[in-house]
Write a protein that binds this DNA or RNA. Structure first.
Length: 454
DNA sequence: TTCTCAGGTTACCCACCAAA
DNA sequence: TTTGGTGGGTAACCTGAGAA
């Protein structure tokens, strides 16, 4: 069996501790030659530089690790923030749902204005409301009626056509229809329209009447509420006062005078109590004694009682007088308080009216501002209509004919004259108006161009 | 389940305009 | 405040897909 004479040395890592130790031993050996020493010195220098670099790199590595740690921390914080935000968002969603639920709450009140409010809310939620507020459907126009009859037919002729195409075909067909063909649909429309107008007028009247009634009801309800509130406040105060008087006895009220018997009993009591008699026994004895007393014996006690009563009545009169005076002043105070309450209520009402007025004014000014936004002196003005051209002519002559006539009556006269005007004259004014309109349109075009360029 | 939208035509309502 | 003219907006019908 072959053996290995010089077995290969065990593989050592270049940077292993043993190798480094060997290297260091070589560097530090004093037995080396001067040339070799020079080489060693440069090697030492390189090593030192390398070590310095290594240190530097170590520091940089540490710094980078620190930075990474910081970034990790920031990321972690951001994630946490996002999580909390999610939680907050969820909370907000729940709150929103709650609020939406609350919005659906409708007070169960029978007050007219509350009902009307609820109704408007329903209107908002309900189907798209017609602009004129009418409940009855408008009559279908002749074209629409014709469409109704012919939709299926056109669809049969063009089974593959889509809605848009069918609609286009119908529109084109309608234009080719003769007057006679259109006539039945126009007549049907006319009849439907008459019926519709009747219904709509009735509805309009009813709506107006209802509105008036509602306004009146609102005012009544407000007044009733105010009255009820004041009454309630008054009653509450009264009740409070009553409770107080029941509990507290008036110390200034004169005490009722004692009777002749009580004066006698008071006189006899000390003597009877000396015999160790109880309160009840003393009362029984004095009662019996009083019964057995003669009129003459009772007379001094009666006299004393009478005198006491006279004093009491005098005191009572004085007490009553002061009480009446107090009551009077209290009543005055209450009346003044009531006046104050009413004034406060009135002031509140005035404030509300003032606020409403301010809001109204603000709306008006905003509207005016909006209107004035495009007020450009160069903007061409709309030309006068044929009627207005006639107005200009007629107004002069009519004003001369009727001096001192007011403007509205004058306009009414002009309107009458316009209606009585002959066809030729009318056409003349129409022609003038048309010319002016043409010129106006050109001016508008130019104005728009310059505006766009600016 | 209910509403909206697409397109055609037409009649009507409403706001606005003009001068004095 | 009066009047007639004008223009913009809307609703009337049909169907079916798609959105809410």
């Amino acid at each position: 069996m072959a053996t290995v004479a010089n077995p290969a040395p065990a593989k050592k890592s270049r940077n292993s501790r043993k190798a480094l130790k060997q290297k260091n031993e070589i560097v530090e050996s004093p037995l080396l030659s001067p040339a070799k020493g020079k080489e060693t010195k440069s090697y030492e220098k390189d090593l030192m530089e390398m070590q310095a670099m290594l240190e530097k790199m170590k520091i940089e590595k540490e710094k980078t690790e620190d930075l990474l740690k910081e970034k990790d921390e920031i990321l972690r914080k951001k994630e946490e923030e996002l999580e909390t935000r999610d939680v907050e968002q969820e909370k907000l969603k729940v709150e929103l749902k709650k609020l939406q639920k609350m919005k659906e709450f409708k007070p169960n009140m029978t007050l007219a204005f509350c009902q009307s409010l609820a109704q408007t809310e329903d209107d908002k939620k309900g189907k798209k409301k017609k602009k004129d507020g009418a409940e009855t459907k408008r009559p279908s126009t002749p074209y629409i009626l014709w469409c109704k009859d012919n939709w299926n037919e056109v669809k049969k002729e063009n089974p593959d056509s889509y809605f848009k195409e069918t609609s286009n075909i119908l529109g084109a067909k309608w234009k080719t229809l003769s007057a006679e063909e259109k006539k039945p649909y126009e007549e049907k429309y006319k009849a439907e329209k008459e019926a519709y107008l009747q219904v709509i007028t009735k509805e309009k009247r009813e709506r107006e009447a209802m509105k008036l009634l509602e306004d009146e009801q609102k005012q009544k309800t407000a007044l009733e509420l105010l009255d009820q509130y004041l009454h309630f406040v008054q009653e509450a105060e009264q009740e409070d006062n009553n409770k107080k008087t029941k509990k507290i006895k008036d110390p200034l009220k004169p005490k009722q005078p004692i009777s002749a018997y009580l004066i006698y009993a008071n006189e006899r009591r000390p003597a009877l109590r000396e015999d160790n008699k109880s309160v009840i026994e003393v009362a029984k004895l004095t009662g019996e004694e009083w019964k057995n007393l003669s009129e003459e014996q009772k007379a001094p006690y009666d006299k004393m009682a009478k005198k006491n009563k006279e004093i009491y009545l005098e005191e009572m009169e004085g007490y009553k007088r002061t009480k009446e005076e107090e009551a009077m002043s209290q009543k005055k105070e209450e009346e003044e308080l009531m006046k104050l309450h009413k004034q406060e209520a009135l002031q509140l009402l005035k404030k509300k009216e003032k606020a409403d007025h301010i809001i109204k004014k603000k709306k008006e000014t905003t509207k005016k501002k909006k209107k004035n936004e495009d007020v450009n002196p160069n903007k061409p003005k709309k030309p006068a209509s044929s009627f207005f051209l006639f107005c200009k002519d007629a107004r002069k002559s009519l004003a001369e004919e009727h001096p001192g006539i007011n403007n509205s009556t004058l306009t009414a006269h002009i309107s009458l004259k316009w209606k009585e005007l002959g066809e030729e004259e009318r056409q003349m004014y129409n022609g003038k108006a048309a010319e002016l309109m043409e010129a106006y349109k050109k001016e508008v075009e130019e104005y728009n161009k310059t505006k766009a360029a600016a």
